[in-house]
Every structure is written in C-alpha cells, then in structure tokens.
Amino acid sequence: MIYPITAYGDPVLKEEAEDIPKDYPDLKELIEDMYSTMYFAHGVGLAAPQISKSIRLFVIDSEPMMDDKDKGKGVKKAFINPEIIEEDGEEWGFEEGCLSIPGVREVVYRPERIVIRYFDEEWNEHEDTYDGMNARVIQHEYDHIEGILFTDHLNGLKKRLIKNRLAKISKGDVDADYKMKFPALSKRR
C-alpha cells in the first residue's frame, strides 16, 4: 500500500512520537508499506509521522545518496523505537530536502557520527555507529519522530525567506509526483 505523504503544516509532524509496543498490529506490513511509499516518492527515508502515524518508526535506504567512492555502503533498514545516544565529530553542511516539504532544499549542518540504539523488525535490540551520509539520513528521519523538521535547523533569515513557500505547501499549492495529504485542505471538509 502506498500512503499519501503528510505535508508541512500538519500538527503530527511537530509532535514527539510515541514508542511502539511489541504487540503493535501488522508492524511488518506497515514497514513494507513505508518502504513502498518511500520508493514511490523517490525518497531515501520515511518516518511514520510523514504518513500521519505518531509512532517511533522510520525506514531508510541511503544507497542513492552515496557518491562514487562509497557505492555499496548505503544502509537499508527499519528503526523501531530508536534513540540517538551519541553525536560527535565535525558538523558538516549538506543540502537536505523532505518528502513532506517538496521543492524546498536548504543546507543543514549535522554532526558526522552518531551512535543509535533501536529495535529491528524481529524486536532484536541493536546499538550501531554510523557516519557520513548514513548518519545524516538517520538524523533527518530521527528528527521527524522528535517533531523536528529540517527547516527547524535553519537560521532566522533562511526561515523568513522560505515562509511563503511553506505556507503554500500546507495549502496544497505545490507540485509533487506522489500523493500528499494537506492540513489546510483537510480542515475545509
């Protein structure tokens, strides 16, 4: 199943998501649907709040973000109830975008290394270290389950410069080649 992507302005994108219980219904199917939705929208990550589910779950496939020297080093994985327990290294800038904010891309600075604790689809606990692009993709998706968008990392001037574009997105005035759910349109019905 392909879910519509929840657009900027929906309150679910600003909420801290809830932990998932082990008996969460149809979790494996949800994870597969999230991968399908992510690939359909040409994304490299998708967090549950982006499909209007306020739970601590995201999926990534960072391989398309790898440059030539790192081909084959991408990560395809689901993260259940993750917790970033350490971030370190030099902060580096990279232009990020978001499926919930189509057409907006800005440079975001993030630490180069993270340590993250999470459960996999079989409820096995892991504590892994990631760096570079893999760390960036994970940090971006992790922010979603914390109620943080990449635009929240921008300085005041940058935020003012994109304010009108963000308002248009929330009203459905945007071109995206995937189905979206717009908060302003939902309220009118």
Results as ranks from 00 to 15, higher is better:
Ile148Trp: 12
Glu63Tyr: 01
Asp67Lys: 13
Asn155Gln: 09
Pro82Tyr: 13
Glu83Arg: 12
Phe58Gln: 01
Lys171Trp: 03
Leu46Met: 02
Gly147Ser: 05
Ile60Ala: 03
Phe94Gln: 12
Tyr130Cys: 07
Ala41Pro: 04
Val44Phe: 09
Pro25Arg: 11
Tyr142Met: 02
Ile101Cys: 11
Gly93Lys: 13
Glu87Lys: 15
Phe94Ala: 11
Gly72Ser: 06
Glu146Trp: 12
Asp68Ala: 15
Phe58Ser: 02
Glu95Phe: 10
Pro82Met: 04
Met65Asn: 05
Glu86Tyr: 15
Ala135Asp: 02
Arg165Gln: 15
Leu166Glu: 05
Asp173Tyr: 10
Pro11Ser: 05
Gly74Ile: 14
Phe150Glu: 11
Asn81Gly: 01
Glu90Asn: 11
Gly72Tyr: 09
Glu95Asn: 14
Asp67Asn: 11
Glu87Asp: 00
Arg105Trp: 12
Ala17Cys: 12
Lys187Asp: 15
Arg105Thr: 06
Lys187Pro: 08
Glu121Leu: 15
Asn81Met: 00
Gly156Asp: 15
Tyr130Lys: 05
Ile116Asn: 08
Gly156Met: 14
Glu106Thr: 07
Arg189Phe: 14
Ala78Trp: 13
His153Val: 06
Lys179Arg: 14
Leu46Gln: 02
Glu29Val: 07
Tyr35Lys: 08
Val75Asn: 08
Asp173Cys: 00
Leu157Asn: 05
Glu106Met: 11
Asp88Tyr: 14
Glu91Asp: 11
His42Thr: 13
Tyr130Met: 03
Glu32Pro: 00
Lys22Trp: 08
Val12Gly: 02
Asp67Thr: 11
Val108Gly: 08
Gly9Asp: 04
Val108Ile: 07
Arg113Asp: 08
Ile2Asp: 13
Asn124Pro: 06
Val174Leu: 07
Asn81Gln: 02
Asp19Arg: 04
Asn164Trp: 14
Pro49Asp: 02
Thr37Ala: 09
Glu121Gly: 14
Gln139Cys: 08
Ile20Lys: 04
Ser170Tyr: 09
Ile148Asn: 09
Gly43Leu: 03
Leu154Asn: 05
Asp177Pro: 08
Asn134Cys: 10
Phe40Met: 09
